[in-house]
Simulated assay, not measured.
Amino acid sequence: MFVRTVYATGNPAQLGTAIRTLNTQGHDLLEERPGFRGAGVFVDRSLGTLFSVSWWESAEARDHSDQVMRERRPALLHPFAGTVAVENYEATVFPVGHRPLTGGGMRLTRLEFAPADADLAFDTFHAGVLPRLEVLPGFAGAALFLDRVRGRGLVGVLFADRAALDGSRAGHALIRHESVVKAHVDVVALEEFEIVHADVRPD
């Protein structure tokens, strides 16, 4: 699986317009693209940040879709977005078989590592981190995105509701502290978002 992420910042008062447009026009555009396998929209309403993810069965399907989405994206995010950053990753770990989520919480961790340590980052997360995350109360899914060439990654952990997200901070911090040493990665940012919608269909 492969993903494209869009990170936009803007006026919090205009965020609702972007959410509605993405959930209607944006979703319809994505569904029309070959190889589309789901999408997620995550927001921080107080800060005015929006993080969206689209899932693709291949890197080729993702890249081909961007020819259309690149042209339509400014209109979809208008008038909210003041800045927009688009990135591509390989989804090396992703939620399987969970129900679509709405209204929960997501914690996003941004990672940097030496490109040669990409496999170590994957192995550490898959074998050591994921099993410990799965027993946190309210856990609803997790994903690991890697850019092996640039040495960058994202970890997204989903929780069923805001209370579970809030209550997981101490336990998740301990897991994170122990795992970054084993994986030889650096945490460069940590954010939390409300889940507007999250759904991935691997098959």
Rank of each mutant, 00 (worst) to 15 (best):
H172E: 15
A91V: 01
T24F: 07
L190F: 11
H177M: 15
A164E: 10
V149S: 09
A163N: 11
V6Y: 04
G97Q: 02
L30I: 05
F94Y: 14
A142V: 00
E194S: 11
L136S: 08
T109D: 14
R148A: 09
R169V: 08
L190N: 09
L101V: 01
D63E: 11
A39V: 06
A75V: 12
N88T: 13
F145R: 01
F122L: 15
G103M: 14
R152T: 10
R152N: 11
R162L: 09
I195T: 08
L47R: 09
M106K: 09
D117M: 15
L47N: 01
L174F: 15
A173C: 07
Y89C: 06
D203H: 13
D203A: 12
A143F: 04
F159H: 11
K182R: 15
L133A: 09
T5D: 11
E60T: 11
T49F: 10
V180Y: 06
H197N: 07
S52P: 00
R152H: 12
A75E: 13
R162Q: 15
P95A: 02
E178H: 13
A116K: 13
A183G: 10
F139S: 02
R99I: 12
A173T: 10
P74C: 05
H78G: 08
L146D: 05
E192P: 00
L15C: 00
T17N: 03
G40I: 01
L76P: 00
G48V: 02
A75Q: 14
A13W: 03
F122E: 14
G97C: 02
G35N: 07
H64A: 14
Y89L: 05
S54N: 05
G103W: 14
D147P: 01
R99P: 00
L111T: 05
Y89P: 05
H98T: 12
N11A: 07
V200R: 02
A140T: 02
P131Q: 09
F125E: 09
A163Q: 13
A116R: 13
L136A: 10
H184Y: 13
L136T: 06
A183W: 08
H197Q: 08
G10K: 01
A81W: 05
L133T: 06
R148E: 05
